[in-house]
């Protein structure tokens, strides 16, 4: 059963990978990267049960945290263009890539 679940997760990873490569827009890629991170978390969980040692489940939890923070960081970066938001306030806020961002 765990083998079937792992195979399904690997197929889902391949599909997310194709979306990340094909694009075409910025948000497709961000979403594909985020869902790929989620699939990695699931894969680590099912891999632990598949090999009979589910000791690394806490590592999978930490991956979920890293994935969340990373996606927030990327999106915030596109909104503000920097890590530290300028104290000017709204003056520095302008979207870098608009809706029409195509490859």
């Amino acid at each position: 059963m765990f083998g079937a679940a792992t195979a399904a997760i690997v197929i889902a990873m391949a599909l997310a990978l194709i979306r990340a490569c094909a694009g075409p827009s910025l948000y497709d890629r961000v979403l594909a990267g985020n869902s790929f991170g989620t699939k990695t978390v699931l894969l680590l969980g099912s891999m632990g049960f598949l090999s009979g040692r589910p000791d690394f489940l806490d590592i999978a939890l930490l991956y979920a945290l890293i994935n969340f923070v990373g996606t927030i960081a990327i999106l915030k970066f596109f909104r503000y263009r920097t890590f530290a938001v300028s104290m000017d306030g709204a003056a520095a806020v302008k979207p870098v890539f608009g809706e029409g961002d195509r490859q």
Binding site: C21, R29, G33, G37, T40, L44, N67
Partner: peptide, 18 residues
């Protein structure tokens, strides 16, 4: 497309971590 390369490098890291 350098943004795609940046996202794919993150995916590469996740894959190699798994």
């Amino acid at each position: 497309h350098l943004f795609a390369v940046a996202m794919l490098s993150g995916i590469y890291s996740l894959l190699s971590a798994a």
